[in-house]
Design a protein around this nucleic acid. Structure first.
Lengths: 336, 336
DNA sequence: CTGTTAGCGCTTTCAC
DNA sequence: GTGAAAGCGCTAACAG
């Protein structure tokens, strides 16, 4: 086991004290140029790097950010993670990634674990179960410990922290309005995520637009994302005469497309489809899905920026803000 | 800033020495039961948790594993990551996740950074650029430092470490043989990842089977995954009379399906399609894609198991092994 | 200019 | 049974 070289060993070999070596490596003006050179030379010879643990223990900064995600197999969160990683690595931060699998219990455990691992801050999207139970004490502890938290997408009003969200209601309104303008009269909203705060906002937005148009009607289908989902959506499409579908999540939208094929409905001639998603399925569906893009990468990058900025430029008495990332309606073949 | 409670504070408040408190918390038999009880009581009152940094500095173990991935937006790697996370969290490990974006330079930087952050071990899939350049000194350093590394999927023979791979050649043979048995005569292999070791193995497997059947011929198409990819595959499908396609990656396979629709070829009547993938696209393609599943989650879980086992039960003179995770041909509508 | 010292929070050996 | 002391590797105030 070849051990990594330490200040102590460099000091010994150079016949200097540990502190002189330490200062030299920081090019401290107190130290003679000659010594500085000698130190640097030996240090780079041994490829010396300070032990991050020791530095962290001393400084109580770990340059590490805890990321709490409900899922990772969902492309949205994968994209957010990618955005976060890209952004924080620019500033020399590392990410500890935890996946709660939508479980409240795991979320609590992970938050505690990372807190005691001294992460400098958190970026969090709440688990579904947490949103349903609405128990948030684990985050209040962080607040008390003065650990910065940024929440994104799945946020809670009960926690006073910076947030980065998508304007789901607005996005939904735009999507429905677009369908209405195209002439849709009977619009279905299909969701597999009805428990989530974001789904509620999307539904609300849809209802609002429809309520202002007496010629347009709305019908809802909420299904669980299980094996029977395809059959359920198929039945729904057969039993209801509709001319447009807004899928509140990618799965709902793509299955709608596939089941429409199966039933012989032409897209977009017989039925237009829009889905909330940043996912790959949309691009590779046939026909290509018109989507409400949540700009997942940007969302992640923005959350990361806000956190890193807060960590690097220590802000006293920071007033938490909620930032809204704009969505865009990306029009593709399924409505065109 | 409410600071976390330390042994020192507990000791002071209990009028005990730090070491007595420390031992009490470990229920050391040296300490009287009465003291142990007093200590535990106050500790849980303050919700004391040992400072992970200090413990790590002392023990040179961080309970942290470095994960180096080429991509995360690729569903295969997302699944592997999920498998790893699930597995390591069972044993109280955390993961530091780094995404190289297929860049050699970033890979080197990340490996160094995590090494100096004292991760206990690594789980790695090589970046494409690293595989092309075949420069692996950054891993040799880990070997020298005695940091365990597990490579998966994108591995290198030059590094002597545990590996978990998929038997790509065998899997490819099985897929082609299946097509041949179904009566395919002119089979195309389409890839967007020809530089990767795995793609080479898959191609080799395909060739081998075809070479043993003089009634069957093989034709290759290698494309870059850029904007023009769809047009390129469309042209290829039009210009060549083929009755089956093996896509060496999900993108190739799914685009083949979509372009077949566009050209009016019926799947699987006119053309059968198989793809290497664990992704979602396959399940939501129309018709559903027959796939060679690489069991990504299992791959990740296995790599994690091997590493955790090595870390927790310190193995002297461990002889590196290469473990092969079985693939399976999952037959769906695109060949049936 | 360089070195001594204390301390971050913990574990562990050795004394009492 | 309990406590003192050293040390993990580093930084920084203070001496010289």
């Amino acid at each position: 086991m070849r051990k990594k070289v330490t200040l102590k060993q460099l000091a010994k070999e150079l016949n200097l004290s540990i502190s002189t070596v330490s200062k030299s490596l920081k090019n401290d003006s107190e130290i003679s140029q000659k010594t500085i050179n000698r130190v640097h030379e030996l240090a780079s010879f041994y490829n010396y790097k300070p032990n991050a643990l020791a530095v962290s223990l001393k400084s109580s900064k770990t340059k590490t950010i805890g990321i709490i995600l409900p899922e990772i197999l969902n492309h949205f969160f994968a994209k957010v993670l990618f955005g976060i990683e890209q952004e924080v690595s620019k500033s020399g931060y590392k990410i500890l990634t935890c996946i709660t699998n939508e479980s409240y219990k795991k979320e609590v455990e992970y938050v505690e674990m990372l807190n005691y691992s001294s992460v400098d801050g958190f970026i969090v999207a709440l688990s579904q179960e947490t949103q349903v139970l609405n128990k948030l004490d684990h985050f209040k502890v962080l607040k008390r410990d003065n650990v910065p938290v940024i929440m994104f997408d799945r946020v809670s009003n009960e926690i006073d922290c910076d947030k980065v969200i998508v304007d789901d209601m607005e996005a939904s309104k735009n999507a429905i309005q677009y369908l209405v303008n195209k002439g849709s009269k009977k619009i279905a909203v299909i969701t597999t995520i009805s428990d989530l705060s974001v789904a509620k906002l999307r539904l609300e937005g849809a209802k609002e637009v429809v309520s202002k148009n007496d010629k347009v009607s709305l019908i809802e289908l909420s299904v669980k994302n299980t094996d029977g989902i395809e059959a359920e959506i198929e039945k729904f499409l057969r039993d209801n005469t509709i001319d447009a579908v807004l899928g509140l999540d990618e799965t709902a939208a793509v299955i709608t497309i596939n089941m429409s094929h199966k039933l012989g409905y032409k897209i977009p001639k017989d039925i237009s489809v829009i889905g909330f998603t940043d996912g790959l399925l949309a691009k590779h569906s046939y026909p290509k899905l018109t989507t409400v893009s949540q700009h997942a990468e940007e969302l992640g990058a923005r959350a990361a920026q806000i956190l890193v900025n807060q960590l690097d430029n220590f802000v006293e008495n920071h007033k938490p803000k909620t930032e809204v990332v704009k969505t865009s309606l990306i029009i593709r073949d399924s409505t065109n």
